[in-house]
Computed example of a mutant assay.
Amino acid sequence: MKKVHIIVATGKWEQDQLRYRRHRLAEFLQHQPDTEKVIWLCPTPKEEENSYTLLANGVNQWTVQDLLPQKVFRFGRYVDQFYEKKLQPFLLYLGQLQEQYTLQLWYTFPGFPLLADLFDWNKVIYDCSDLWTSPMNGKPSIPSAVRQRIIARAEGRIIQRADVIFCTSEYLRTKIAEKQGTAEKVFTFENGVEFDLFSNPPVHKENVLPAGFDGTVLGFIGGIKPKLDFALVQEAARKKREWLFLFVGPDGTNGHPAFKQLINEKNVLWTGSVAPSDVPKYMDIIDIGMMPYKSSQYNKAVFPLKLFEFLAAGKSVVGLHLPSTKKYAEESIYTYLDTDDSDQFIRACEQLEGFKDQEDYIRKRKILAKTKNWNEVFTEMVKLI
């Protein structure tokens, strides 16, 4: 029998124009010969004219309206009574497919936990890419503590119900295995890369850099969120005026003052959101990739998507407070730092600066990245299911 894959996602497909692991997973499954269809099931803050739409890539999107549009009410995604009735039309639709197809439920975040029990699924899979039970900004508060308890209960139910669980880091695997009580069905699969896309980029974007600038460009590409250390980068930018610090991606900080202060520096440039198809072009502008994360419980679990994308593009990378990436540290390839000292960050970048145009090192970076192609990652995951 052919398969129908239902992917529980955090938001609509084109939300903030970013492509996460779940997007690559959906497209991989969509192109498998035994797949009938992929359904992207996601919450949406606002009422949709049509809850069911067919996306241009062939993925089917089904939205479930939040309790209320304000962000504070998103906790309803984890509490049964706030979404159970809204799922009924979707369940009726699934009932029409059940006799013809094998149905697999993929959780990519711990929302709608009751869904796992409302239907007779052939398989339930949890693909965990974040420490959902810890605040992203690393700062505890009473509201965040309440929210994290709600999420923890929802995630615990999904963990117990899942037939197989995938994690993007060993830290996450250990945490989930503790909750599960066994590690037998919990596996680590780090994030991968669309190697061909990044290793052979199109001509880079024109008119991005300041007129006449020919110095070193340090770049971050992705969602700009509170997990990043804006203060450290600002210190580095003030000390190294001859460098340009480029940020490419949407502001996910809700206008945090630290990010506003950073982009006011004369050698810091923020592009805002860009189309996913343009990301390799911006990657081509960058000399050194930077992943400046804060020291926090949340970031202990993070395996950033951009590590292998930078390397596939032949760029060296420096990362802060990302222990899941430490094993890839190698001279001229990837520098791992566990520090809040901007001077250490600068010294690491200066060392990488000396290797940036050397073909032997560019080739080594690409060789490492090629071993992490998404198709191979997902193929191995599907074999375990």
Results as ranks from 00 to 15, higher is better:
Leu228Ile: 05
Leu228His: 13
Leu228Lys: 10
Asp229Pro: 09
Asp229Ile: 04
Val233Lys: 03
Glu235Tyr: 03
Glu235Lys: 14
Arg238Asn: 13
Arg238Ile: 10
Arg238His: 12
Lys240Arg: 15
Arg241Glu: 14
Arg241Tyr: 06
Glu242Trp: 03
Glu242Gly: 03
Trp243Gly: 02
Leu244Trp: 04
Phe245Asp: 09
Phe245Trp: 13
Phe245Asn: 02
Phe245Ser: 07
Leu246Asn: 08
Phe247Tyr: 09
Val248Met: 08
Gly249Phe: 06
Pro250Met: 10
Pro250Trp: 07
Gly252Ile: 10
Gly252Tyr: 11
Gly252Trp: 10
Asn254Ile: 04
Asn254Ser: 13
Gly255Ser: 03
Gly255Asp: 00
His256Tyr: 04
His256Asn: 11
His256Glu: 12
Pro257Tyr: 09
Pro257Ile: 01
Ala258Ser: 15
Ala258Trp: 08
Phe259Trp: 12
Lys260Tyr: 10
Lys260Thr: 12
Gln261Lys: 14
Leu262Tyr: 07
Asn264Lys: 14
Glu265Thr: 02
Lys266Gly: 05
Val268Lys: 02
Leu269Asn: 04
Trp270Lys: 06
Trp270Tyr: 09
Trp270Thr: 09
Gly272Arg: 05
Ser273Pro: 15
Val274Ser: 01
Ala275Leu: 14
Ala275Asp: 15
Pro276Tyr: 08
Pro276Ser: 11
Ser277Phe: 04
Asp278Trp: 06
Val279His: 03
Val279Asp: 01
Pro280His: 04
Pro280Ile: 01
Tyr282Leu: 02
Tyr282His: 12
Asp284Thr: 13
Ile285Ser: 00
Ile285Cys: 07
Ile286Val: 13
Asp287Met: 09
Asp287Arg: 06
Gly289Arg: 01
Met290His: 07
Met290Pro: 01
Met290Ile: 15
Met290Leu: 13
Met290Cys: 07
Met291Tyr: 06
Pro292Cys: 03
Pro292Tyr: 05
Lys294Asp: 09
Lys294Ile: 14
Lys294Phe: 08
Ser295Tyr: 11
Ser296Thr: 15
Ser296Gly: 05
Gln297Asp: 14
Tyr298Asn: 11
Tyr298Ile: 00
Ala301Met: 06
Phe303Ser: 03
Pro304Asn: 10
Pro304Ile: 06
Leu305Ala: 09
Leu305Cys: 00
Leu307Arg: 06
Leu307Tyr: 04
Leu307Val: 11
Leu311His: 09
Gly314Phe: 11
Gly314Asp: 04
Lys315Gly: 01
Lys315Pro: 10
Lys315Val: 03
Ser316Asn: 13
Val317Gln: 07
Val318Thr: 08
Val318Gly: 03
Val318Phe: 01
Leu322Thr: 07
Pro323Leu: 11
Pro323Trp: 05
Pro323Phe: 02
Ser324Pro: 02
Ser324Asn: 01
Lys326Thr: 10
Lys327Ile: 15
Tyr328His: 14
Tyr328Lys: 05
Tyr328Trp: 14
Tyr328Ala: 07
Glu330Trp: 08
Glu331Gln: 14
Ser332Cys: 13
Ser332Trp: 12
Ile333Val: 15
Ile333Pro: 09
Tyr334Ser: 04
Tyr334Ala: 05
Thr335Asp: 12
Tyr336His: 14
Leu337Ala: 06
Leu337Gly: 11
Leu337Gln: 12
Thr339Lys: 03
Asp340Asn: 15
Asp340Pro: 02
Asp340Met: 09
Asp341Met: 10
Ser342Trp: 01
Asp343Arg: 13
Gln344Glu: 15
Phe345His: 12
Ile346Ala: 05
Arg347Phe: 13
Ala348Asn: 10
Glu350Val: 05
Gln351Pro: 00
Leu352Glu: 01
Leu352Gln: 08
Leu352Pro: 04
Glu353Ala: 12
Gly354Ser: 14
